[in-house]
């Protein structure tokens, strides 16, 4: 009895010591990643917030603390609101075009009766792996008013009687960007939808067939509801792609004409790293713009996640 009583705590102690050792090893293995995350993710985020409180060109001493003055200046800057609005217009355009189109193509390519579907999948995926800057430069000549492929095609088809100045007018430049960005990222969204479609249980479709449901009814009452979780992921990825299309925009329109396609990334870049308007770079002000926009995007993502969770709950 005594030996048993003294043996149990000893075993527990040994187990605790073993667990402690394991934990130490676990921390040791996690530590490098933690250091990397702290250095390359947390530190830049924290410092961006700090810089946003200073008037600072990006060099020299960080000694001109201005509090929230950079944010106040943002509020009154019509170009900031222009870029803010344009970013969301572009995002809405690409998301609205990409999501249904990618789903439609995924459904077509999911059909076992389609001959050569792997070739089509590859063709749709090629733009995804092509460098955005190259696409931007090529698209600039494709959308050119003088001898551009798009205009020549439309003229040949008799759809227009004079060339459209695609990239020289604000609205058409935005439209061209939306079309090109949607085409560029269509392949990856199609693959995501395809993965979702291929994971749907076949039994449900068999049961629907037995119940006499037609294609449209099956699509509406089985495919769409089951694809909602995948749809949320595709939506988030589409939003992220639209908000990080700097290289494509920079090479295709440079934010122009004027500020018609100047999105937040370009706005921040100009203030942070160029002598925009002939003055010193303004990293402090650009940081404030980044913080403001970052918080907005975070709130939108949060709202979307909550909405998706609510939809899932309602479905259950």
């Amino acid at each position: 009895m005594t030996s048993h009583a003294t043996g149990a705590p000893a075993t527990a102690r040994r187990r605790d010591a073993r667990n402690r050792g394991r934990r130490r090893w676990a921390y040791a293995f996690v530590l490098p990643q933690l250091v990397l995350v702290a250095a390359f993710t947390l530190y830049p985020i924290v410092m961006t917030h700090v810089y946003s409180l200073y008037e600072w060109p990006g060099f020299g001493p960080l000694d001109r603390f201005v509090g929230l003055r950079n944010f106040a200046r943002l509020i009154g800057d019509e170009l900031f609101w222009n870029a803010f609005q344009k970013s969301f217009v572009f995002m809405a355009g690409t998301v609205a075009l990409q999501l249904p189109l990618a789903l439609f193509i995924a459904i077509l390519l999911n059909s076992e009766r389609l001959y050569g579907r792997n070739v089509y999948r590859t063709l749709f995926f090629i733009p995804v792996v092509t460098t955005s800057a190259v696409i931007g430069i090529v698209m600039r000549s494709i959308f050119a008013s003088h001898d551009g492929l798009v205009n020549n095609g439309l003229l040949l088809l008799g759809l227009i009687d004079r060339p459209i100045r695609w990239l020289s007018q604000g609205d058409t430049a935005m439209l061209a960007l939306v079309l090109v960005a949607s085409w560029k990222w269509l392949g990856i969204k199609m693959i995501m939808w395809l993965a979702g479609l291929q994971s749907l249980p076949v039994e449900l479709y068999d049961a629907a067939k037995v119940d006499g449901a037609n294609y449209w009814q099956t699509f509406r009452h089985i495919t769409v509801p089951l694809l909602v979780p995948v749809g949320v992921v595709v939506l988030l990825f589409s939003m992220v792609d639209a908000l990080t299309a700097f290289d494509l925009i920079f090479t295709m329109t440079e934010g122009g004409p004027g500020f018609a396609t100047e999105f937040m990334e370009l706005y921040i870049y100009r203030y942070a790293f160029t002598s925009f308007a002939g003055g010193l770079p303004q990293l402090g002000y650009a940081s404030a713009a980044g913080v403001f926009f970052g918080i907005t995007v975070f709130l939108i993502s949060l709202a979307l996640s909550l909405l998706a969770r609510r939809v899932s709950r309602l479905r259950r």
Partner: peptide, 14 residues
């Protein structure tokens, strides 16, 4: 708040 050169490009485009 509105740089001169880019603004001119914008005005001509509009």
């Amino acid at each position: 708040t509105r740089p001169f050169g880019e603004s001119m490009q914008g005005f001509l485009a509009e």
